[in-house]
Design a protein around this nucleic acid. Structure first.
Lengths: 234, 234
DNA sequence: AACTTTAAATGTCATTTTTACAATTATATT
DNA sequence: AATATAATTGTAAAAATGACATTTAAAGTT
């Protein structure tokens, strides 16, 4: 077989928008880029798609390289393809966003780049169109988390209802009523109450919960209505 | 500036999943592919992204070339990037799905390919991974149309409630209660009742409605809940 | 041991939304 | 004038939501 004639070939990259939650703020994992152009500037973690890889593989490889983690929640955000988004040469980027339990994160032993967590609101200036990617990823996160049980991916296996609420409030930059929030969350039937309590934050202590894995996978794509009108909060 | 060294460059294409509605069935616009490989086989309308184009431009150009239509509703579905999805050479495809008013469609005067509408259920075998693209597009359509006022894009400017209901029933392959359906639709406040009736289908005739354009754009991204549990229908 | 403090957990009521289900109306045709 | 057909409208029970306050567990203090 021959090739398609007279067509433009271009580089294809993946870039990962990696969200984490430290118990207080929603955070973004960024790196100092290790090569030209824009070497030393803050950037999303990315890499070129290799000849034998599909996009998911490239994204998973990139994520693992930075965090050491595997089996992380990740989904394709969208493809960014402005002709001049990379000044060096035309590069299409397929953006993926990932949600990780920040406590499981272990900085990779490498000198290629330095990685750092930034509160989403205090992220530095980013190269290329990466700020757009982050903005779109945040919008997607808010969208999906309002109707699907997504944010659990940001928490450890055991978590308390108050911790979960703080997470939701960080994501939506809004406050929720304690009573209604816990009722809503518990009514999904996804949570299993544990015997132990978390005792660090309060005198009384809050019961830990775990996800019911069966129900979680079954209802992951169902419409669960965690946040009523996410476009119209505060 | 130099170029990134030792990386694989590849072709980037766009493919359009074009949905239409003829008043009865949800349909898909397909073409007979005009060049090798797989010349003469049924395929989605697509084309290569040009050197000076971004992805949206390429998709819009492709759609206009086939349908003669501009300003059509279109959104990026996802990027498909298996290394061997095109046997000729590695080609990434960014899929877009489009919703058009089938009545406005005018077959383009061209010999490059023949285009034809197929009921979604009776679509022929497609080349490459195009069947996957269609399946994903249908899933996305069902997903979005359940919570956003999307399906209006498939109807003419004037339409009746019964017509709208037939469309929803075609999309979800399910039946809905007439009374609840019309109440739900009217409660969005998006519809403006017209004075004229549609008289072809029934003796009594059904009133035409039009979209309130202001409210439509304002509420396009709001959560409107047209279909309660689309994942769990008949 | 009793008291204080702090955050977790739980309860109620009014309102809105959803669901299930049936009767009435407009108009062309007979 | 009667009939047939599809459009339109109504209603009551159940479920979900939103606004709001009190009780409870446990550590720390007196």
């Amino acid at each position: 077989m021959t090739r398609y004639s007279r067509q433009t070939r271009m580089l294809v990259a993946v870039d990962c928008i990696i969200f984490g939650f430290d118990g207080q703020d929603l955070k973004l994992l960024l790196i100092k880029r290790g090569f030209e152009p824009e070497k030393g500037k803050w950037s999303l973690m990315g890499g070129f798609v290799q000849a034998d890889e599909d996009l998911e593989q490239a994204a998973a490889r990139t994520l693992t390289k930075l965090t050491g983690l595997e089996g992380v929640y990740m989904e394709q955000l969208t493809a960014f393809g402005s002709p001049d988004r990379d000044p060096m040469e035309r590069t299409l980027s397929v953006a993926y966003f990932a949600l990780i339990d920040i406590n499981q994160y272990k900085q990779q032993i490498t000198d290629e780049y330095k990685a750092e967590w930034f509160p989403l609101k205090e992220a530095p200036k980013l190269i290329f169109d990466h700020a757009n990617m982050v903005a779109e990823a945040q919008a997607r996160l808010r969208y999906k988390a309002a109707i699907h049980p997504l944010l659990f991916e940001l928490l450890p296996t055991r978590f308390t209802i108050p911790q979960l609420q703080i997470l939701f409030e960080a994501v939506y930059d809004a406050g929720f009523d304690k009573r209604n929030f816990s009722r809503k969350v518990l009514s999904t039937g996804l949570l299993v109450k544990q015997k132990e309590k978390e005792r660090a934050t309060s005198k009384r202590g809050a019961f830990y919960y775990k996800l019911d894995k069966r129900k979680y996978s079954a209802k992951f794509h169902a419409f669960l209505n965690f946040v009523s009108d996410p476009g119209n909060l505060k």
